[in-house]
């Protein structure tokens, strides 16, 4: 519907405004939309929208965790997704003009679209449940977090993850850099996502 499209568009602008207007270098922003499962009554956070900025040293980080087999798999999935969106049959591997390697952070952002959090699970769920921001800075802290998503983020090169509860869901910010908690960005996110504009 046009309403859904309008909301989707404003979400994108807000996420972009958070990332591009921040003093720090954030790699991505995701809005996890809150809802209640009609069948079970469970609280659910699922993908609402995301903005991927990337990181300046994408190329350098590229070979961090991914093997040749990983890259083959990622490229194949991307070709299939491109085909799903465009409606055209997927090109053969050697016919694809755009066949750049898929970075770890791109891949993490992409797989995030399929994730969801039930009843306060994960860092986004915890932020929603406690109505307070969850901020994890440092690869070692992410790696040892009691949250599968945080550990996965670290494995894909993310060093900082912040989850900020807002009206209707949670805004998650991720960065390949080390960013310590600051009230400026949490305040900005809250302002952007509660203004209703």
């Amino acid at each position: 519907s046009s309403t859904a499209c309008f909301n989707q568009e404003t979400l994108q602008y807000r996420l972009q405004a958070v990332i591009e207007g921040a003093r720090e270098s954030w790699t991505y922003a995701i809005f996890w939309q809150s809802s209640v499962d009609a069948a079970t009554g469970a609280s659910l956070l699922a993908w609402g929208d995301g903005y991927y900025r990337g990181c300046d040293d994408d190329k350098r980080k590229l070979r961090g965790a991914s093997t040749a087999a990983d890259q083959e798999h990622r490229k194949r999935v991307l070709r299939e997704l491109n085909s799903l969106i465009s409606g055209a049959p997927p090109p053969a591997a050697d016919e694809d003009a755009v066949d750049e390697e898929v970075t770890d952070t791109e891949w993490f952002f992409l797989v995030s679209m399929a994730q969801s959090f039930v009843d306060g699970a994960g860092l986004p769920g915890h932020a929603l449940l406690t109505a307070s921001a969850a901020w994890v800075a440092g690869a070692d802290r992410l790696a040892s977090a009691a949250c599968e998503r945080a550990r996965q983020a670290q494995a894909f090169g993310i060093q900082t993850m912040a989850c900020i509860p807002v009206g209707g869901g949670v805004v998650e910010l991720g960065s390949t850099g080390l960013i310590y908690h600051n009230a400026e960005i949490t305040g900005k996110v809250r302002a952007l996502f509660t203004s209703g504009t």
């Binding site: 699922a46 993908w47 929208d49 997704l81 969106i85 755009v98 952002f109 992409l110 679209m113």
Partner: peptide, 26 residues
Amino acid sequence: SRAVPQARKASLARFLEKRKERVTSA
């Protein structure tokens, strides 16, 4: 493709389009 929820599909389309732009301008 009907199984792909609309929000994810819109985000995915945007991500792929921007990625194509990034790659071709690099």
